[in-house]
Amino acid sequence: MAKLSIVVPCYNEQETIPLFYPAVEKVVRQMPVETEYWFVNDGSSDQTLAELRKLHDQNPERVHYVSFSRNFGKEAGLYAGLEATTGDYVVVMDADLQDPPEYLPEMYQEISSGEYDCVGMRRTDRKGEAKFKSFLSNQFYNVINKISDTKIVPGARDYRMMTRQMVDAVLSLKEYNRFSKGIFNWVGFKTKYLPYKNVERVAGTTDWSTWKLFKYAIDGITDFSEAPLSIATWIGGLSAFIAVIGIIVVVIRHFMAPAGSAFGWASLVCIMLFIGGVQLFCLGIVGRYIGKIYIQTKKRPIYIVKEKK
Score class of each variant (00 low, 15 high):
Ala156Thr: 07
Thr163Glu: 02
Asn138Gly: 15
Ile147Ser: 08
Arg164Asn: 06
Gly155Arg: 03
Tyr216Pro: 00
Pro154Met: 08
Lys146Leu: 14
Lys151Arg: 15
Ala156His: 01
Thr150Gln: 10
Thr163Lys: 01
Phe184Cys: 04
Phe214Ala: 15
Lys181Gly: 02
Arg160Trp: 00
Leu194Val: 12
Trp208Lys: 10
Tyr141Gln: 09
Gly155Glu: 05
Val199Glu: 06
Leu173Asp: 15
Asp207Lys: 13
Met162Trp: 02
Ser172Cys: 08
Thr210Pro: 02
Asp168Met: 09
Gly155Met: 04
Tyr196Asn: 03
Trp186Lys: 14
Ile152Phe: 08
Leu173Pro: 01
Met166His: 06
Arg201Cys: 09
Thr150Ala: 12
Phe179Pro: 00
Ile183Trp: 04
Gln165Asp: 11
Arg164Leu: 06
Leu171Met: 11
Ile147Gln: 07
Thr191Gly: 03
Lys181Thr: 05
Ser172Arg: 10
Asn142Ser: 15
Ile221Asp: 06
Val153Ser: 05
Pro154Cys: 10
Arg201His: 13
Val202Trp: 01
Asp207Gln: 13
Phe189Arg: 08
Val187Tyr: 00
Asn145Lys: 09
Asn145Pro: 08
Glu200Asp: 14
Phe189Glu: 05
Lys215Thr: 15
Met162Tyr: 03
Met162Asn: 05
Thr210Leu: 14
Lys192Thr: 05
Leu173His: 13
Val170His: 04
Val167Gln: 03
Leu171Trp: 07
Asp207Gly: 07
Arg201Ala: 11
Tyr193Leu: 08
Thr206His: 03
Lys197Asp: 15
Val170Ile: 14
Asp207Ile: 10
Val143Gln: 04
Gly220Ala: 08
Ala217Asp: 12
Arg157Phe: 05
Thr206Gly: 15
Ile144Val: 14
Lys146Pro: 00
Lys192Gly: 01
Ala156Cys: 14
Val187Asn: 00
Gly220Tyr: 02
Met166Val: 08
Leu171Glu: 07
Lys192Glu: 02
Leu136Asp: 06
Ala203Thr: 02
Met166Gln: 12
Ile147Glu: 06
Lys197Gln: 14
Val153Trp: 04
Tyr196Gln: 05
Gly155Cys: 06
Ala203His: 02
Tyr216Met: 11
Glu200His: 06
Asp149Asn: 15
Ser148Thr: 11
Gly204Asn: 03
Val187Gly: 01
Ala203Gly: 05
Gly182His: 03
Arg201Ile: 06
Ile152Asp: 05
Gly182Tyr: 04
Ala156Ile: 06
Gln139Leu: 15
Ile183Thr: 15
Pro195Gly: 08
Ser148His: 10
Gly220Gln: 03
Asp219Phe: 07
Arg157Val: 01
Gly188Ser: 12
Thr150Lys: 07
Trp208Val: 11
Phe214Gly: 07
Lys212Trp: 14
Arg164Lys: 13
Leu213Ser: 11
